[in-house]
Computed example of a mutant assay.
Amino acid sequence: MSTQAPETKIVDTYRVACDGGDGPLGHPRVWLQIPNEHGWVECPYCDAKFIHKDFEGKV
């Protein structure tokens, strides 16, 4: 059995919320701040990666 790769989302704000999706099967909503120097952040619960649109293709 293999595990799914974490989801990657391109966003246009530096502050994003993640609840894992899937309604009741998700996780508690957390607010994440994308650092200006990296351009991306990962959710500590589901490992989803949020990339700011200015850093798309650079990460």
Rank of each mutant, 00 (worst) to 15 (best):
Q4F: 12
D19E: 13
C46L: 09
D47T: 15
H38S: 09
I51E: 03
H52W: 06
G57R: 08
D19W: 04
C43P: 03
P28Y: 07
M1V: 15
R29K: 14
A5Y: 05
G26H: 05
V16H: 02
G20S: 07
E42F: 02
L25A: 15
K58P: 03
F50P: 07
G26M: 07
R29A: 08
H38G: 01
P35N: 08
P44R: 14
G39E: 08
G26D: 01
A5H: 10
G20P: 05
H38L: 13
G20D: 07
K58A: 13
G21N: 10
W31R: 06
P24F: 15
T3A: 13
W40N: 08
G26K: 02
I10H: 00
S2P: 15
L32N: 05
A5W: 05
G57F: 14
G26L: 06
A48C: 14
L32K: 03
D19G: 08
E42P: 02
V59C: 14
C18P: 02
A5I: 09
K49L: 12
V41E: 03
P24N: 09
E7R: 13
T13I: 03
V30L: 01
D12A: 11
K58Y: 11
F55Y: 15
W31D: 06
T3G: 10
G23L: 14
V41A: 00
A48V: 15
C46W: 10
D22V: 12
T13A: 10
C18S: 00
T3L: 15
L32V: 01
N36K: 15
Q33P: 02
F50K: 00
K49C: 11
F50V: 04
P44Q: 12
G26T: 04
D54S: 12
H52F: 06
T8H: 02
F55D: 01
K58M: 13
M1P: 02
V16K: 04
P35A: 07
Q33D: 15
F50R: 05
P24L: 12
D19T: 02
T13V: 03
F55S: 05
Y45D: 08
G23A: 14
I34A: 02
L32W: 00
C18Y: 01
I34L: 02
W31Q: 06
E37R: 09
G39P: 11
H27T: 11
Q4W: 07
E37I: 04
Y45N: 13
T13G: 05
V41H: 00
I34K: 02
P35W: 09
